[in-house]
Design a binder for these strands. Structure first.
Lengths: 191, 191
DNA sequence: TGGTACATGTAACATGTTACATGATTAG
DNA sequence: CTAATCATGTAACATGTTACATGTACCA
């Protein structure tokens, strides 16, 4: 068995994505960060540090090779055959469940300890952020639809998601103590 | 300034949640894991290891104190005044944006490299998981509504979310190449 | 007395974040 | 010439995951 430098253990999703972008041609770390930000940044985050680290590890495993350094110390990498195979193996594996970490939900679930005005401030800031995101997604959709149906499908998830969040935010006052219905009762009882 | 053992740096959300649960009375690590799983597990994950580590750190910072060891080496912790203050400080801070890491979206965005049958298998497994979750949420809602409006509000987010995901999954065949409309065309052209 | 659920923890590792340090190139 | 942008990287730390190790108490 000639060991081609640890094709063994499975890739993590971040590393695999980098390989995926490299399928389109050689890219430097900097490029990859920009590409990732743009293409998967909405549902998969990564940092510069991480990218450089993964590139080093991928090179060591023989899944990519460093090309000739260009202008500004630009270090391009390109896929090897092993890298292509590793990417395909990753892609073919059943994806795990999504992970959501939602600080607002966490704080709301401790809502009994939270002053209503603060709660309201959180929610309102949150609503602004989400309606901005929805608007941005809707703006981008038509263009993407023509260019790349896969990206458009993924963006459509984002639109569904943001819409659901906004709808939930609308419901909140009726669900929470001190919300609209309670206030209506308070007004009706002549407070 | 009497330094009360580093009340300084802000808590992370996981540690803060543990403090939040301890507001309801002394709990052991084991209890806290179970409570967290049940109460915030759907939108905030944590592991046993992490909990024990955080408990150690919180005790060192003077935010909790270890009580007397009970049966089965059970080690209960309770909040200190500093712990209460730290929890309130965390709760009052503006929550950051949610983070979503969605492996299926990642793989779909590389959809051009994915065989349609595999894509279909991913989506179908995903759909099953999400409809099960939605059903579970809907089942739990009435009970929670009476018990804890905050938990119910948070669960309602989950219901909105799962509904949105399922709706998106329904849309997918029309968005992706080789989807239902394409198939209809193929059938019409007599394949 | 044997299995299951309870209970705690460590070690090793993987992943992710933040701050720092350095320098090249380009546009004005 | 100088500010902004491009480009790479390290160090330190925080967070999260997995596997391992140990033992108790309850129930059948």
């Amino acid at each position: 068995m000639s060991t081609p430098a640890a094709t063994d253990k499975p890739l993590n999703a971040t590393a695999a994505s980098l390989l995926g972008f490299l399928l389109e041609g050689p890219r430097s770390g900097w490029d990859l960060v920009a590409t990732a930000e743009q293409r998967i940044g909405n549902f998969w985050s990564l940092t510069r540090s991480q990218v450089y680290r993964e590139l080093g590890a991928l090179a060591e495993r023989g899944l990519i090779t460093a090309g000739m350094v260009g202008a500004r110390d630009r270090q391009p990498y390109e896929l090897t055959a092993a890298g292509r195979a590793a990417f395909q193996a990753w892609l073919a594996a059943q994806p795990g469940p999504e992970q959501i970490r939602y600080p607002l939900l966490l704080k709301l679930s401790f809502g009994r300890h939270l002053a209503p005005e603060q709660r309201a401030a959180f929610i309102s800031a949150h609503r602004d952020a989400h309606s901005a995101k929805l608007a941005a997604y809707n703006k981008r959709l038509p263009e993407l639809r023509a260019q790349d149906p896969y990206a458009a499908a993924v963006l459509t998830f984002g639109i569904n998601y943001e819409t659901a969040v906004l709808r939930w935010l609308d419901q909140l006052p009726d669900l929470l103590p001190g919300g609209s219905s309670t206030q209506a009762v308070a007004r009706a009882s002549g407070a």
